[in-house]
Structure formats: structure tokens, C-alpha cells
Design a protein around this nucleic acid. Structure first.
Lengths: 349, 349
DNA sequence: CTGAAAGCGCTTACAG
DNA sequence: CTGAAAGCGCTTACAG
């Protein structure tokens, strides 16, 4: 039953000229009728509208853009190929813009200067209204200079250049949420196992960790720095618990720098027969659902609200494109704690 | 040092008219010089080129598109918000197209008909040259009908409509790769733990599993169907090994329907003191690196080559846009086995 | 060898 | 109340 011929004749879209002809008016009048501009009898306007509708007329966005000097498109640059962070962010951006009729060009620039340059030029040639630059960490630049582009640029989850507008998650605030939650649950010896010193967020979160403990008069253990991996979580448990099995020095809570580390920690604790959350509570960071929900027990984790961050970035770009001024600088957006079972319940719970 | 004023004056891009004026020729001549068209003295051409270069002229793509009836843009529809499958695919598409000067609009349609329709209309209005539809499983349609769009559509990793061109991974072939690998390693009792019956790929892969075992004269155990989760992997190990600890009936290899199941299987085996890969070999599916590399031992897995699939889809769309005919139907692209340590080494290795 | 003209599909002053 | 004209930035026959 399947034919080998090409389907549906490739008809060319109907133009305003055709609508005008069919309604017996000039293109100018047709244009004004459809855009609610000019003055004409309600009757004429309605007739033109109906004709357009009947013919399935949709204005050619390219022609409109040429005139209006706005293409209703923006470019989204990212080097997060793996996409754990970009994806929710992209979804947020896309959501914020689609309702304004703005479409998003996806530019995967990897860490390749040539590729990045190529994409930026393509965006400029296509006259995008603005660019959103995003990445996988907030302390590194994309491999391209976006500073003097004559179109607005918003940075999100990547290092902005000076005098630009950037959005990032409030990592210190997120860490606070986690550690304060442990305090509320009555945990007394809270450890911190996190990523490598080369990441700015490692220091931000560690600082908040120290501050909260100090505020609560609790002992501060030096944060353990390592890789962003499960394997490091495992190793860290050995460092934290070896020689003090169930003893006084052992932590009763571990705040982890990401969910993979947390998973390693939880697995290692289980292997040692240490109960989570009863003996030791664990909280992760990123709220990477597929990991957080598969740990046993399911992992409480700090969510960076990346899709909200994407939304904000999208709206900010829209406002810049619309000519609204914006003060340069970094805006930190709040994180949120997603409570599952790995952190325990309140003493009286 | 940071100013609160808006940066860089928003200059308007230089036009061909300016280049022509500056070079002392007409716009027509300037256009021809830059496009290598028409005939003129090499000298004139060179002078115009230099002027364009000096002024930083870049042709307005919008104007070109209007004339050429080609926008050099395509739309990429996806409902895979989580992005485990889309991302490599998108990267592949983007790679294939960027060199042809074609940019990709990202349309996140979720499973929402209204959103999908909105995006498709935006794409049509922006006169994309074609559309690539992609999703998270090959036996479901996107929530929108792309059948009579008067522009070419390519389907990749989502259900195509009849008479369209679709790309998908050769799941049966992938399963074959895994099971044959076990056979080559001398495994004799190979089990299959996979996802729910509602997925077409579950049946495809199970069929291949049965075929290969039959070809090798090995016993076929009924595949165990469940969720695509670690938890199910755990559970399945209980079903496979309970009551036959180290005994004759227990499998010496498990081929899993995805990497999460495989991870659950490996964890459960370790908890039972069953050695992987010495006692039981395990192979997963998806080659989701972050999971495959974190299992202990690292997981051998079938990779669907999604970024290659994205490339092929991109190139196919380009060729359709260029007017080349393409026979409708589904093209299956080969998978590849990524060998790590969970499957064991050859008997003599 | 080079330029004036027409046109892609639309919108927006400006006349009438 | 409606239309002719000019123009967005470019390209491509067609004259000269």
C-alpha cells in the first residue's frame, strides 16, 4: 500500500498579495487589516481576515524581520554537550521565549574556538535579536568573546564578561539550605565531601558550610575535596569512618558536593553496615533525579532550579532586546532543597 | 571600575549599499563581486572584496533568504526533555548542518499538543527549510502531525509517519552484538533482563537474544520484563538466583535492556557475593557513560551511536532540501559494543 | 566590463 | 475609507 512516489506537492506558501487579490483590495490595505492598523470599515477588515483565513495565509517572517529589524530569534550557545545542566536550562529559555514568538537557535560549541566562532557568525548573519551564553560551570568562559557584539548578550550558568548580565544559582545559599536542614534534624557532626579545588563552587559551598556550622556552634571538619564521582564518595567514606566505627569521632551527617558523590557515600555506608539515614544522614547537590531516585534510600538533594534560571535569562534577554536597560552584574537565583529519605526525619518525627 | 552605563553603542550592521558606495560601484556590481558572479576586472573585484572586508560587511541572511526561498535554517522537534537520548542526537544534527551554514531551531514540545503546534507554526512562519522530528522512543509519535507540511521532514529516534524517511538504531543488531559477545566468551546460561512489554524495542531485542542463543545451541530462558530501573535490576537478580546459589540453574551472564537495569543487577550480584565478571558477566544497553563508568566493575554496554544517527538525519534532510529524492522507509543504523570490564575476558585471556 | 531595474514579501508613511 | 509609492537588504536577469 505504500507508494514510492514523493508525497504532497510542495506548494509554495500563500502571500499577502494573493490574499489582497482574492479580497479585491490592495496589499497595503490587506496588511493593515490583518495587523489591526489603519482605518477601514469593519466589514472590509472582516472580509480580508476571512480571506486570509480561508487561504491559510501566514505572513512570511523573513520579510517582516527585514523591515522590523528584529528577527524574533535568539542564539543559545552552550558547551555542555553532556547536557546535564544545559538541558533544563535550555528548556527554561525556550519556554520563556516561545510565547513571545521568539525561536531559539541551538549552538553546540563544545570547547572548540573555531566552532564557537562559526556559530556566532552564523547567528550574526541571521540577525538574531540576542544571544544567551550558557555552559557547564560558572567559573569558565565559553571559548569565544561575546563582548562587543552590538546585540544583547545574557550569560547563564557560565562566566559572564565584565559589565554583562549573568544569572547563576546561589550555591552558597543552596549549601546553607542543606546544612541548616541537618542542624534542624539535630545532627551534630556534619561532614562535607565535595569536588576539586579548581571549581569556584567548591569554595562557595564550603564557605557556607563552615558559616552555618559556626552559627550553630557545631564543630567544623575540614571539607574533603576530590573528584565529582561516585568513586570519590566511596573513598571519602573510608577517610571519614576508618578507625572510628560507630565511635565518637564519626560524622552523623554528610553534605555532598553533588549527587554522584552522595551516591558513592551512601553505597559505601551501606557496605559498612552503617544505616542511612538512621546512623548518618546524607544530602547531595544537583537533584539529578535519575540518580537521586535510584539511591537506597532516595537522596535528599539541593536543586539549582536551572529551568527557572533559564526562564529568567530568557526574559532578561527579551527585555534587553526590547530596549529596557539592565544593570550589569551577576544575579544569583535561589536553590531549593528536595527532601527525600536519605537525610532522616526530625527527632520527634 | 565597573560602569553602570550600557556597553558598546548598538551600531547597525554595514550594508551592501555602504560597501558599494565606499568602493565606488553599484550595489549590483558589489553583490556580484562578492559572490563570484558576473564578469569584471580582477582588479575591481578585489577592490570590492577588500572594501567589504575592511568594513566588516556580512550579508544579511534574512534578505538573502527572502530571495533564495531558502532560510538555511531547520527546526528540530523533540519531546525528550530529560535529554538522555536527544542530546547526542541533537549534537550530531547540529554538527552535520553547521558546516553547510544551516542553523537549527530547538523546539522542545514536551508531550503537549498545543506547544507542539505552536512550535511547528513558528517554524513554518520562519520558513525553515525542513524539520527533524526526534523523541525518546521509536514506537511513539510526537504530539503533532507533520505529514502534509510542504517542507521535508526527517524522523530520527521517533515513530515516522507512513511514506516518510526515518532513522533508528538497529536494536536487534545491538542485542546480537551483546549476546554473541557472551557466546564468544564461552558463557553458556545467558539471561535477559529488560524493560516493559509496552516498548517495541523490548521485543526486538528479546527476539535477537533468542535467535542468537538458538544459533549457538544454548538454552533460552524467558526474558524477564520489568521497569527500566535499577530497582528492577535488583529484583530480577533475586528471581534469577534465589534458590540456586552457585547452582547449576543459575545464569553465568545477564544481558540487560539498559544500563540502569544493569547497574541494579551488578549491585545485587555484589551484595550476594557473586563475582562480576568471573561468576557472571553483565552487559547493558545505551552506553550511558556516566552510569557505565561508575558501576563496579565498569559496564560493557551497547551504544546506539545516536550522534552518528543525528548526523545521518541531518545529512538526509539537507539532501531532501536540495531536491534529491529519497525512498520512504526506515533506515536502521548499526549499534556498537563498548567493552569494559563487566563481561569478562575470553577463556584463554 | 558595469549599472539600472525589477523583485523577494511585507509594512508604513503619505496622498487622495 | 483606501491605494500608490517607497523601502528593508539583497540578487539576478537584462541593457548598454
Amino acid at each position: 500500500m505504500s507508494s514510492d512516489a514523493s508525497p504532497a506537492p510542495a506548494k509554495t506558501p500563500v502571500t499577502l498579495r494573493q490574499v489582497a487579490a482574492s479580497a479585491g483590495v490592495s496589499v497595503a490595505t490587506a496588511s493593515k487589516a490583518l495587523n489591526g492598523q489603519g482605518r477601514m470599515t469593519a466589514e472590509t477588515r472582516e472580509r480580508i481576515r476571512e480571506t486570509a483565513q480561508r487561504l491559510g495565509f501566514r505572513p512570511n517572517s523573513l520579510a517582516q524581520s527585514l523591515l522590523r529589524r528584529r528577527s524574533f530569534t535568539v542564539g543559545l550557545l552552550t558547551n555542555d554537550t553532556y547536557g546535564r545542566f544545559s538541558l533544563p536550562l535550555m528548556a527554561g529559555v525556550s519556554d520563556a521565549l516561545v510565547d513571545a514568538g521568539v525561536s531559539v537557535f541551538l549552538c553546540n560549541v563544545e570547547d572548540d574556538m573555531r566552532l564557537a566562532q562559526l556559530h556566532v557568525e552564523a547567528m550574526l548573519d541571521k540577525r538574531v535579536d540576542g544571544i544567551i551564553a550558557t555552559g557547564k560551570r560558572i567559573d569558565r568562559h565559553l571559548p569565544v568573546d561575546l563582548a562587543n557584539l552590538r546585540i544583547p548578550v545574557i550569560y547563564a550558568f557560565t562566566q559572564p564578561d565584565p559589565d554583562a548580565v549573568g544569572f547563576e544559582s546561589d550555591d552558597a545559599g543552596g549549601a546553607r539550605l542543606a546544612v541548616e536542614h541537618f542542624c534542624r534534624l539535630g545532627r551534630k557532626r556534619i561532614a562535607h565531601v565535595t569536588g576539586p579545588a579548581s571549581f569556584a563552587v567548591v569554595h562557595e559551598r564550603a564557605r557556607a558550610y563552615r558559616e552555618v556550622l559556626a552559627e550553630h556552634g557545631l564543630p567544623v571538619a575540614e571539607p574533603l575535596l576530590g573528584a565529582w564521582s561516585e568513586a570519590w564518595g566511596h573513598e571519602a567514606v573510608a577517610k571519614l569512618f576508618d578507625g572510628k566505627a560507630g565511635g565518637a569521632g564519626a560524622p552523623d551527617a554528610v553534605f555532598c558536593g553533588n549527587d554522584q558523590i552522595a551516591r558513592g557515600v551512601i553505597d559505601a555506608l551501606r557496605e559498612r553496615g552503617i544505616g542511612v539515614p538512621d546512623d548518618v544522614g546524607v544530602i547531595g547537590f544537583d537533584n539529578w533525579e535519575i540518580v537521586a531516585e535510584a539511591t537506597r534510600p532516595p537522596l535528599t538533594s539541593v536543586d539549582m532550579n536551572l529551568s527557572a534560571l533559564g526562564r529568567e535569562a530568557g526574559l532578561a534577554l527579551l527585555s534587553l532586546v526590547g530596549g529596557q536597560p539592565a544593570a550589569p552584574g551577576i544575579r544569583k537565583l535561589p536553590c531549593r532543597l528536595v527532601v527525600r529519605q536519605s537525610c532522616g526525619r526530625p527527632p520527634g518525627g
